[in-house]
């Protein structure tokens, strides 16, 4: 049951950093057969200023395509998008000065050092003289690449490359920052550091961040709001809490017990119950409402309850439910 896309009109347009309607994109690739690939099929988003907005979805869902259109790197076939009040097609150049993008699998000129790459792109953003040197120095420190400033790009580790990509994306102090899978393929400890940096960017500077990821955890941790994208369509959007509430995957109650396991099928609100090796797993419509009845039924049936845990659904389950 897809959740309707919440009405953008509730928020005044000036408060929106990004607004898009009916975005379509078809790629025609592969010579000579000209395969057709519909990457986006009518995507609408409304992202308030200062928000971290997550675009979630499996590989090939169209996340990068959507981000590229919003970043003026790709022209949509149909629909429109405005970022910071500027049309992404007609006012692209003015927009480019105010947004930036970092992707997890970014690539830069191999022979240039980390520092040289930042100076090169810094110049492209119109930075010059001492101002540019200060900026590059600050970003090298902020993104923790200072010790590797003189290392050529192709000798940097994946984590450092990702951090360099982030540093490059901050050169122009963007008002809107696009992050395309910023932690893909990283060791967990490094991924955590990058997530901290993303969170602090919003905290310190109020940047609007659009984050594409297929790690649900990452989105849940960082984003105010997420949209589920699959096969070029947005299936649902809202805050993680809203989505969990609206798309009831049910709460999971896990009970460790001793003695016989009574049949629970008849109990109101119990959607599913499985027992194995002294652990009973119940899916109920609402844990708060049903917990007492459930425990009562167990005791009556002669079971001794040793441990009870109520597990909230995570975004992953919400997504699986949606994708069904």
């Amino acid at each position: 049951m897809p959740v309707p896309i919440s009405e953008a009109s509730a928020i005044s347009p000036t408060m929106l950093a990004i607004e898009a309607q009916g975005l379509h994109k078809v790629f025609r690739g592969g010579w000579p057969t000209r395969r057709r690939k519909e990457a986006l099929r009518g995507v609408a988003v409304a992202i308030p200023r200062g928000a971290i907005f997550g675009i979630l979805g499996p590989n090939g869902a169209g996340k990068t395509t959507l981000l590229s259109i919003l970043a003026t790197l790709l022209l949509p076939d149909a629909g429109w998008a405005r970022v910071l009040g500027l049309d992404v097609v007609r006012q692209a150049r003015a927009l480019r000065a105010r947004v930036n993008l970092a992707s997890g699998n970014a690539s830069f000129l191999w022979a240039l050092t980390a520092e040289e790459i930042l100076h090169f792109y810094g110049r492209l953003y119109g930075l010059y003289g001492r101002g540019r040197h200060r900026k590059v120095q600050a970003l090298l420190e902020r993104c923790e690449i200072e010790p590797y400033r003189r290392v050529p790009y192709n000798e940097l580790s994946t984590g450092l490359k990702q951090r360099l990509s982030l540093a490059k994306a901050l050169l122009n102090d963007p008002e809107v920052l696009y992050l395309d899978e910023p932690t893909v393929g990283l060791d967990p400890d490094i991924a955590v550091r990058i997530r901290e940096q993303i969170a602090s960017l919003r905290r310190e500077r109020g940047i609007t961040i659009v984050l594409c990821t297929h790690y649900m955890r990452e989105a849940e941790q960082l984003c105010d709001e997420v949209a589920f994208l699959r096969e070029g369509r947005i299936l649902a959007r809202g805050s993680a809490a809203e989505l969990k509430r609206e798309i009831r995957t049910g709460d999971r109650i896990r009970v460790r017990l001793e003695g016989p396991v009574p049949a629970l099928a008849g109990l109101p609100g119990v959607l599913e119950a499985t027992a194995a090796e002294g652990v009973l797993e119940c899916v109920v419509d609402d844990a708060v409402k049903r917990l007492d009845d459930l425990l009562g039924a167990l005791r009556e049936g002669g079971a001794v309850v040793r441990d009870v845990r109520v597990l909230e659904p995570d975004l992953e389950e919400v997504f699986l439910e949606l994708a069904r």
């Binding site: 000129l109 022979a111 090169f120 110049r123 119109g126 930075l127 010059y128 003289g129 540019r132 050529p152």
Partner: peptide, 24 residues
Amino acid sequence: MSWRAEAARYWAFVAKNAIMTRRS
């Protein structure tokens, strides 16, 4: 727009190619 910012944009490519020549 300051002329130095404009000049930086042109110079970016000169500097890049100069470094690439030295490196490769």
